[in-house]
Design a protein around this nucleic acid. Sequence first.
DNA 1: TCTCCACAGGAAATTGGGGGTT
DNA 2: AACCCCCAATTTCCTGTGGAGA
Length: 421
Amino acid sequence: MKAFGDDDTIFRDMDVLNPNEQTYQPTDLPERTEELDQIHSALRPATMGSTPLNILVYGQTGQGKTVSITLKTNQLQEYADDADMDLTVVHVPCKGMDNSYHALTHLYKEIREKRLGPGEELPSGYQRKALLNMVLEELQEIGGTIIVVLDEIDAIGDDDYILYELPRSNPNGVRLSIIGITNDLQFRENLDADVRSSLGEDEVKFDPYDANQLRNILSRRAEGALRDTHFRDKIRDYEHLESEVLSSDALPLAAALGAQDTGDAREAIRLFFRAARFADDNGETTVTEAHVRAARDFLEQKAVESGIQTLPQQKMLALMSTTWHISKGESSVATTPIYTQYKKMCDVEDIEPLSNRRFRDRLNDLSDSNILTKKRGRGRGKENKYGLAVDVATAVENLPQKNERYGEVAEILRKQVEMGN
DNA sequence: TCTCCACAGGAAATTGGGGGTT
DNA sequence: AACCCCCAATTTCCTGTGGAGA
């Protein structure tokens, strides 16, 4: 067995590459200078004794929206502390909330904690209007300039209440500014025109990073996280002294793959982190292109597996009935036999089967999410044929267990696959 | 080459659940 | 509670397609 502490490592500080933002937050964002400047301009009135402008920040996930706001508000807070200015910043993550009321309760709690220290309870049982008044009273209690950051406000859906009331409440003796952050571009379009004009006094848009920007971001992270040539003396295994910790093509590849995909920096970092760990776990001293590719395959495989595991019930049955046929050796099967098998499975589980038409949509859904393959046309009349886009083993292993829903059918399927081999 | 027909997939009709109103 | 409205999911209906079989 391996002993801890004996391993050489290419890492200097692994946390810097950890995609989890609680572990590491960058302190400067050269790729977002423009956006930071826009935020700066909107917040600057605070330093002149005026109300900072409301901002609506939007862009896809992993584009540095939250970090930018945090950096800028922290910077303002520092200035305020030095200048003896009365400034309070409240950050409310709305992720997982489903309505304005929910968001208001959290806002109330956060404000109370700013004033009275941690340990406040979430309020409950109040009417919406009453709760809003409580929030406003708390704001007045604090006074001065207050910036409320509503992070991921798209989570609260089309419930505009908080966004409608808060910006126009203007409590006595308070200079109140609202910053809304959203991942959902559609959300901005769907906003009530009034809300949009009051909340979006300034709008800051974060476009997806391109491959160059991702490469810069990754190299900064890599620099902090990996040992470089100057740190070789810290590596105990001197025979590897000649090798570089990072091969020249690994990082650009990770950046290119990331840009191709979504331009999500978090995803790119996750990919590169995994590649570096592969290298490190194998006791290798260089992160190579091969590691990046392996990491990509690994993450894709993980995504497929969790995709199968979290499949909705009907899609799960559709996958199982397809797999049932495929596991008998065919490479692809026509819709009708799959549907027949599906109906049998529904019978076993005592469920009302979907109509043929609907079931075909389910099959197409599965092929859209790259779990099944689809061949159109061919054969008698016009007939689609479906196959598995993943290994039979992968599909079978990730089906429900005995004790879970549809476990019975899955169990039968597993038996058949065993016999087939 | 012609006709037939089983299926694909678009569109209309139906259902059913949640939320609001009286 | 009774009612209506809205929305999404689903079923029902329908047309177009293109190889099979004559």
